[in-house]
């Protein structure tokens, strides 16, 4: 069996497992989308909080940064004693992993809004909430989106490791390929994962451009 060429193996495996592959891709997207989705909600909120209350800056960004330094495989491993195996612990780990770029970019985006714009806004009688939602967040939007894109791309890669704690996804193929020494299976998992990362980055880029206020585009 191993004497067949790599290409033939791939074709054969695809014939055998195409339904499985489709499911794995969907599962992979689900892991990424849910974890990044929660990270956006929580990360942007924390980013806003940090830019409002300077005292939170150190602890929040420090903690998120520390999470980022834990090797992804180790972080997934830590989840097992806490949440067991499967989808939930993987999503939690991936979520923690995506937080930092989103918090940091939200914070940076907000505090780098021109001071004179804020002064004019409050001088004309806008409330803090109005300034946040009508001025700061729209102007910071491209920077926040850059953080979301970074998180997403990293996450697609990291999510392949989630198979290790039984969350499925494209990682299943890679692990199977490694354990059976079948390069074809590794590729069937890895290539779609890479393509998925590129595709999501492209889609988010498009979305960013469509939503960015016209006056901010260069």
């Amino acid at each position: 069996m191993n004497r067949r060429s790599l290409w033939e193996q791939i074709v054969q495996q695809l014939e055998m497992r195409h339904a499985e592959l489709g499911m794995a891709v969907l599962q992979h997207i689900k892991l990424v989308a849910v974890s990044v989705g929660i990270a956006i909600v929580i990360g942007v909120t924390l980013g806003i909080a940090v830019s409002r209350f300077r005292r939170l800056e150190g602890p929040v960004i420090g903690t998120a940064g520390m999470l980022q330094t834990i090797p992804s495989l180790a972080l997934l491993g830590f989840m097992i004693p806490l949440f067991g195996i499967g989808e939930l612990p993987s999503i939690i780990a991936l979520f923690l992993y995506s937080l930092l770029p989103i918090i940091r970019n939200t914070h940076t985006g907000i505090v780098s809004v021109d001071k004179s714009v804020i002064e004019a806004a409050s001088g004309m009688g806008m409330t803090d909430t109005q300034i946040l939602f009508r001025i700061q967040l729209p102007i910071a939007f491209p920077v926040i989106m850059a953080g979301v894109r970074t998180s997403t791309v990293i996450n697609v890669g990291t999510a392949t490791l989630a198979a290790f704690i039984g969350a499925g996804g494209l990682g299943d193929f890679i692990f199977l390929g490694i354990s059976r020494s079948m390069d074809a299976l590794v590729l069937i998992g890895a290539v779609p994962a890479a393509l998925l990362a590129l595709l999501l980055d492209f889609v988010l880029g498009r979305l960013e451009r469509a939503v960015t206020p016209k006056g901010l585009k260069i």
Binding site: V117, A120, G123, T127, I135, P138
Partner: peptide, 23 residues
Amino acid sequence: NVVELRRNIGYVIQQIGLFPHYT
């Protein structure tokens, strides 16, 4: 009320401070 007060006073600053994302 500070917001009321400010809405009734025009304010122009050196750095202009127009909102870049507004027409």
